[in-house]
Simulated scan of single mutants.
Amino acid sequence: MAIFGSSFTYNGKSSDDFGVIICASEQPESIPMGLTREILKGEITSRRPVSNWYNTKYSDVLTFEVTITKPENRAFSREEVRDINAWLTGPRTPTLLFFEDEAFDPINYYGVFTDVTNVYGSGILMLTYTFTADSPYGWSNEREFAYNNLENCLLAVNDKNVSVNNKNVEVTIQNAELFEVNNDTDEIGDFTYPLIAIYSYAGTQITIDNYSEISTNDLLSHSLTLTIPNAIDYTNPLYIDSKNHKIYYYSNTKKKNIPVQLSDLGFTSDNLTNLDNGSLELYWVRLVPGVNKFKITGGCSIKMTFRCPRKVGAY
């Protein structure tokens, strides 16, 4: 299970770097799951004996404890306690935590350590840290699906796992007519919003149609069409952050992300007016649970990156 893995990595550093091992001071009675939900419903009255159910929400985020000790039950020195506390309590915003646990599929968590206690004998023998995630569950390894229809830039076709920036990224590359993206999320009633990188040339019109989301003949409600702006070339992609509703590119000279206006993406003044008054919707590309089939029109290479929810708590 995750909290009893061989080691863990947080904020880019491994517990192995500090010479500690994961342990438990006592056998846990249960493993935190973090899936308690509340029902959002209307009132019950004499004329309405059955309440209206609107939705559900998670009651809180996932929290669990991680206990570490030194080999052979040796006590921690004061300097070691300082170094470990500085490492684990340093981040103030959600930071990636994952455990090395070969017996199970990898689970990743984002959060901060919010408390620390200890077991004292002939010195501090164990340190127990409370981890508070930013969500009620963990996440899969990062998934990257790549597609290309540029004849002069065909991608190598293979399925493999690679290591990028110390993160395991599961990569699938396709050159087929339809771009297939597998979203094996545990949130089977919700969409997943990927980060999309489009590699193309200025002036190229790109259309992304999600055929798997079409429930009517209205293709426009599941289609995004844009024109690559002049600031973009094949080595500098246009990013679409569907989750946070952002479109931008990275400036190598300014060393930061530069927002792109819809008017720079080929949207006419009529389009912008209709977006403002609600008669036209901007489709932010999203993934339904299961296999998504996209039709990509226009010369480009596309990468979709995302993580899938994993409802296993700290197991």
Rank of each mutant, 00 (worst) to 15 (best):
R82K: 15
D83L: 03
I84G: 02
N85K: 10
W87Q: 03
L88V: 03
T89R: 09
R92I: 11
R92E: 10
R92N: 13
R92S: 14
T93N: 10
P94D: 06
P94T: 06
P94Y: 04
L97V: 00
F98S: 04
F98D: 00
F99N: 04
D101R: 08
D101M: 05
E102I: 12
E102G: 06
D105S: 11
D105F: 06
P106A: 06
I107D: 00
N108H: 12
N108G: 01
Y109T: 03
Y109D: 05
Y110M: 12
Y110A: 07
G111K: 03
G111A: 08
G111I: 01
V112T: 15
V112N: 09
D115T: 07
V116S: 07
V116I: 14
V119P: 00
G121A: 14
G121Q: 12
S122E: 15
G123S: 09
L125E: 11
L125A: 08
M126R: 12
L127R: 08
T128C: 05
F131D: 05
A133H: 05
A133Y: 05
A133S: 15
S135Y: 10
P136N: 12
G138K: 07
W139C: 01
W139R: 10
W139G: 04
S140N: 03
E142K: 15
E144S: 14
A146K: 13
N149Q: 10
L150I: 11
E151P: 00
C153V: 09
C153Y: 12
L155T: 11
A156N: 14
N158G: 04
D159P: 00
V162E: 15
S163W: 02
S163Y: 04
S163I: 11
V164A: 04
N166D: 11
N166H: 09
K167C: 00
N168S: 10
V169E: 03
V169A: 02
